[in-house]
């Protein structure tokens, strides 16, 4: 096995592992048991998704994927902090 095929197989395996990581986060998201667990799982979910997209970028040799990963990083942060803030406010004002 030469280095090129090794890289090819490692990238495929890494993608599989990232998808598994996303699946595990989804399981935690579905099981809960409370809203904070689900938001935490969403955070882990988008981080794994970002890793998957970066791996796609290496696989295809296309730098466009970098931009997608950057957008995910920014939107994921905004989304999770908005949800966390909502969890705090939603309960205190009630």
């Amino acid at each position: 096995m030469n280095a090129q095929t090794f890289l090819l197989w490692s990238l495929a395996l890494a993608e599989l592992l990232f998808v598994m990581a996303m699946a595990f986060s989804v399981i935690r998201m579905l099981r809960g048991p409370s809203a904070q667990n689900r938001v935490l799982a969403l955070d882990a979910f988008y981080v794994a998704g970002m890793g998957l997209i970066l791996t796609f970028g290496i696989q295809t040799g296309d730098t466009v994927y970098f931009e997608a990963a950057l957008v995910i990083a920014l939107l994921g942060f905004v989304g999770t902090s908005a949800l966390a803030k909502f969890l705090m406010r939603g309960e205190t004002i009630e």
Partner: peptide, 29 residues
Amino acid sequence: GLPDWVAVLTAILVLLGSILTLIGTIGLL
């Protein structure tokens, strides 16, 4: 034209990164 050492290094780093992310979500579960 990609040198072998780059291919191997990239492969190992990507694998390591994906394994660590997976372990993180295993902990989450």
